[in-house]
Deep mutational scan, measured.
Amino acid sequence: MSIQHFRVALIPFFAAFCLPVFAHPETLVKVKDAEDQLGARVGYIELDLNSGKILESFRPEERFPMMSTFKVLLCGAVLSRVDAGQEQLGRRIHYSQNDLVEYSPVTEKHLTDGMTVRELCSAAITMSDNTAANLLLTTIGGPKELTAFLHNMGDHVTRLDRWEPELNEAIPNDERDTTMPAAMATTLRKLLTGELLTLASRQQLIDWMEADKVAGPLLRSALPAGWFIADKSGAGERGSRGIIAALGPDGKPSRIVVIYTTGSQATMDERNRQIAEIGASLIKHW
């Protein structure tokens, strides 16, 4: 067993022997301040990774656009098919120029040779490549099948209805392509620590998230040296922004954090800054 596999296998073990965790309302004060600064709703939840206990939450059962955070769930569904012998990570998928959609920095470079399922998941999570996500959605049967996968996990809230990039439209009061912070946090925890996926697939999923290259201005910008984070960000229309993450000190994750916002007129930089400040408060009061 590799060191990384050992780390993920012992996530519940280490967490069980940690000192009790206590909620700190100071972080919620910052979440509410972010709402004021952005002029928009902000949803927040913080779960203990081992027990699933909610440590703090704000608007945990209000719907927010998922945006690209759905790509972690998508690759979880792909990995479940791999575990069941219905898919192979090494299978190569070929596609054409007509398949390319807006923001496809990886797939646009491989029109000639195609990409493997493993490479597509890596591109979808680490670079948020939209064509990679659409190609992977095709392998599982489309958005409705991802929703069905989530329902089978016990998540009857999260739903995907459309493809990239239309799913980022974020129309107010439109339930399409949305989740709730509580539902997303619980589902992410199941994917990373539950028995739904094999140990190898859980490790692969967290490795992809740990290698995320496009979430630097968010929670990662607030992390002290030595902290662990595996995350996936999302951005959408109407001032929408979000991030889902597993993080913790001492090089291992111990909490799940989900943050979503929508309806702001603020710039992307300002949305990023507010999420980073929430992260800084979380870490300060850990």
Results as ranks from 00 to 15, higher is better:
24 H>I: 09
25 P>H: 15
26 E>V: 11
27 T>K: 07
28 L>C: 07
28 L>E: 06
29 V>F: 12
30 K>W: 03
30 K>Q: 11
31 V>G: 00
31 V>Y: 01
31 V>D: 00
33 D>Y: 10
36 D>K: 15
40 A>L: 04
42 V>W: 08
44 Y>W: 03
45 I>P: 01
49 L>Y: 11
49 L>I: 15
50 N>C: 08
51 S>N: 14
53 K>L: 14
53 K>T: 13
55 L>I: 13
55 L>M: 13
55 L>S: 06
56 E>N: 11
58 F>G: 04
61 E>Q: 15
61 E>V: 11
63 R>S: 07
65 P>Q: 03
65 P>I: 04
66 M>E: 02
71 K>F: 01
71 K>L: 01
71 K>A: 00
73 L>E: 03
75 C>G: 08
75 C>M: 05
77 A>W: 06
78 V>I: 15
78 V>R: 02
79 L>S: 03
80 S>C: 08
81 R>L: 10
81 R>P: 01
82 V>W: 07
84 A>S: 13
87 E>F: 09
88 Q>Y: 15
91 R>F: 04
94 H>R: 12
96 S>E: 15
97 Q>H: 14
97 Q>F: 14
98 N>Y: 15
98 N>D: 15
99 D>H: 10
99 D>C: 05
102 E>T: 15
104 S>M: 02
105 P>N: 05
105 P>K: 06
106 V>N: 07
106 V>K: 07
107 T>E: 01
108 E>Q: 13
108 E>G: 13
111 L>Y: 13
111 L>I: 14
112 T>S: 13
116 T>E: 14
117 V>G: 01
121 C>M: 08
122 S>P: 04
125 I>Y: 01
125 I>V: 11
133 A>L: 00
134 N>V: 00
138 T>R: 14
139 T>H: 09
139 T>Q: 15
139 T>D: 11
140 I>T: 07
141 G>P: 03
142 G>I: 04
145 E>A: 12
148 A>T: 13
151 H>C: 10
152 N>Y: 12
155 D>K: 01
157 V>F: 11
158 T>I: 03
158 T>N: 02
158 T>M: 02
159 R>L: 06
159 R>Q: 10
159 R>A: 06
159 R>G: 05
160 L>H: 07
161 D>W: 00
161 D>R: 02
162 R>Q: 08
162 R>P: 02
167 L>K: 00
168 N>P: 01
168 N>R: 04
169 E>T: 12
173 N>G: 13
174 D>H: 03
176 R>F: 08
177 D>P: 02
177 D>W: 01
179 T>F: 04
180 M>I: 10
181 P>T: 04
181 P>Y: 02
182 A>I: 13
183 A>E: 11
184 M>F: 09
187 T>V: 08
190 K>Y: 15
191 L>H: 03
192 L>W: 08
193 T>K: 15
196 L>Y: 12
198 T>A: 12
198 T>D: 10
199 L>S: 14
201 S>A: 13
202 R>T: 14
203 Q>E: 10
204 Q>N: 12
204 Q>Y: 09
204 Q>C: 15
205 L>W: 04
207 D>A: 14
207 D>K: 14
210 E>I: 15
211 A>L: 14
214 V>P: 05
214 V>K: 06
217 P>T: 10
221 S>R: 13
222 A>E: 13
224 P>I: 02
224 P>E: 06
228 F>E: 01
228 F>C: 07
228 F>K: 08
229 I>L: 07
230 A>W: 03
231 D>V: 04
232 K>I: 02
233 S>C: 03
235 A>E: 03
235 A>K: 01
235 A>M: 06
236 G>T: 06
238 R>T: 10
241 R>D: 03
242 G>Y: 01
244 I>V: 15
244 I>M: 10
246 A>S: 10
246 A>P: 02
246 A>W: 06
247 L>R: 02
247 L>G: 01
250 D>E: 14
253 P>K: 09
254 S>H: 12
255 R>C: 04
256 I>N: 02
256 I>K: 00
259 I>K: 03
260 Y>L: 13
260 Y>P: 02
260 Y>D: 01
261 T>V: 14
261 T>Q: 08
264 S>Y: 06
272 N>C: 05
273 R>E: 15
274 Q>F: 10
277 E>S: 11
279 G>D: 02
280 A>V: 14
283 I>D: 01
286 W>N: 03
